[in-house]
Simulated assay, not measured.
Amino acid sequence: MKKDCAFIFSDELLKYKFSKHHPFNQFRLELTVDLLKRLNALDPLAVLPPRIATDEELCLIHDPIYIEAVKKAGRGILPNEIAGNYGLGSEDTPIFPNMHEASSILVGGTLTAVDQVMTGKAIHALHLGGGLHHGFRGKASGFCIYNDSSVAIKYLQNKYHARVLYVDTDAHHGDGVQWSFYDDPNVCTLSIHETGRYLFPGTGNVTERGQGKGYGYSFNLPVDAFTEDESWLFTYRNALIEVAEFFQPDVILTQNGADSHYYDPLTHLSATMKIYREIPKLAHEIAHLYCGGKWVAVGGGGYDIWRVVPRAWALIWLEMTENPNSFGHLPSDWIDHWQKIAPVDLPTEWDDPDHLYPHIPRKEEITEKNAITLEKALFPIRNQQDQKKE
């Protein structure tokens, strides 16, 4: 197993908590870490605590006035009518005590991961507490207060002068990151997500390609509702391979939302654990092919915290460290320990059983639509290649 990988974690990350019943539940981090520990797959020396992002670092992306509003909200002194102007106090993003501090450590964790990789202390780094891709310059959105990935990309540009390929496999479009770099040719964003016709945030159309100098550096793959493994993976694999070859990145940053699974309560896709094996595997290959291995991975969405997220996120670390212990039965002591409080029957295997869900009559139609979407998304690259041949 590889030893030169960093796993960013501390219990401080669990303080990003909107309410007891909010779907964004960082308890999934604890479940994932415990699963890795019971596999003897998480060397304590590889675990590094996240630092707190400074206000100056947050201001790489966020408006200082917004940051002050978040601070006041967390102290209970921001009037409700003003909070709404910043997306705070909504059903999606409720106010909670010390929300600035809790959010800053999520951002700092991603920056910790970046520094580990870019200084050569680690070849890969994983920060599952990050991946809050909906945050905007001056507004919270979709469970996201600060956008750690956007801050990290700007940080990578300023400190390391890196060309960054951002790959987002969350079921929700990575809108906050896309808009942050929509006119920047040195950042390439690739998002594969459920079509916005049915799902928040409603963006991520294939025609969103960037603007100005950044035109042609934003790639969106809005797959149809009920998309299954084969079509999802065909779309993802072909897009990432071609986009990486086109962009030639210095570093790859992947957002690993685990909400495309059939079990996820907030989305409408029909993927299984098969895609969560392949997502990190292909990212790993791309990182070594183009970036000298430089790969930073963060978490993201994922709302079936018992059956899906721990397996999906553990597989990222097992891929990074080239640990083959990810087949067959899950550790029985992990199942026994958590089944006592789990509201659902925990899985006993790494992989899902065949026939996890009923047959989908529209399968061929969905597959065809996704193939057309892929062609449209990659048209600028392929058209450019055809012109060079001529």
Rank of each mutant, 00 (worst) to 15 (best):
Asn383Ser: 15
Gln385Tyr: 03
Asp354Gly: 02
Glu365Thr: 06
Ile360Asn: 13
Arg362Thr: 13
Glu368Trp: 06
Ile381Leu: 08
Glu365Trp: 02
Asp354Glu: 09
Glu365Asp: 12
Gln384Gly: 11
Leu378Pro: 00
Arg362Ala: 14
Glu375Cys: 15
Asp352Cys: 02
Pro380Lys: 01
Phe379Ile: 07
His355Ser: 15
Pro361Ala: 02
Asp354Lys: 07
Pro361Cys: 02
Asn383Pro: 12
His359Tyr: 08
Asn370Leu: 06
Thr367Asp: 12
Lys376Arg: 02
Glu375Thr: 11
Ile360Asp: 07
Thr367Asn: 10
Lys363Leu: 06
Tyr357Arg: 03
Glu375His: 04
Leu356Ile: 14
Glu365Tyr: 05
His355Cys: 11
Pro353Met: 15
Lys363Cys: 11
Glu364Val: 06
Arg362Pro: 10
Ile366His: 03
Ile372Leu: 13
Glu364Leu: 12
Glu368Pro: 05
Gln385Asn: 15
Asp354Ala: 03
Glu375Tyr: 14
Asp354Cys: 10
Tyr357Ala: 13
Ile360Phe: 00
Pro361His: 05
Leu378Ala: 04
Thr367Leu: 07
Asp352Ser: 01
Glu375Pro: 04
Ala371Val: 07
Gln384Trp: 08
Asp354Gln: 11
Thr367Met: 03
Thr367Trp: 07
Lys363Val: 13
Arg362Ile: 04
Glu375Leu: 15
His355Ile: 11
Arg382Val: 09
Asp352Glu: 03
Lys363Gly: 09
Leu356Phe: 05
Asn370Met: 01
His355Asn: 11
Ile360Val: 10
Ile381Ala: 03
His355Val: 05
Glu368Thr: 14
Pro358Trp: 04
Glu375Met: 15
Tyr357Thr: 08
Lys376Cys: 00
Ile366Phe: 15
Arg382Glu: 13
Ile381Ser: 08
Lys369Gly: 02
Asp352Pro: 06
Phe379Val: 10
Lys363Ser: 14
Ile381His: 00
Glu368Asn: 10
Ala371Asp: 08
Asn370Gly: 02
Ala377Trp: 00
Asn370Ser: 00
Ala377Glu: 01
Glu365Pro: 09
Glu368His: 09
Thr367Val: 10
Ile366Lys: 06
Ala371Lys: 15
Pro380Gly: 02
Ile360Met: 03
Phe379Arg: 10
Asn383Thr: 09
Ala377Ile: 01
Thr367Arg: 04
Ile360Gln: 07
Arg382Leu: 04
Asn383Val: 02
Ile372His: 07
Gln385Ala: 08
Gln384Tyr: 11
Asn383Ala: 14
Pro380Arg: 01
Pro380Val: 00
Gln385Pro: 07
His355Gln: 13
Tyr357Lys: 04
Tyr357Asp: 15
Asp352Gly: 03
Leu356Glu: 14
Pro353Arg: 03
Glu375Trp: 14
Pro358Met: 05
Gln385Gly: 03
Pro358Ser: 10
Lys369Asn: 06
Leu374Met: 02
Ile366Cys: 10
Gln384Lys: 08
Ile366Gly: 05
Lys363Thr: 06
Arg382Ile: 08
Glu364His: 05
Lys369Phe: 15
Lys369Asp: 05
Lys369Ala: 03
Pro353Cys: 01
Thr367Glu: 11
His355Asp: 12
Glu364Arg: 06
His359Met: 05
Lys369Met: 01
Tyr357Asn: 13
Asn370Val: 00
Glu368Val: 12
Lys369Ile: 05
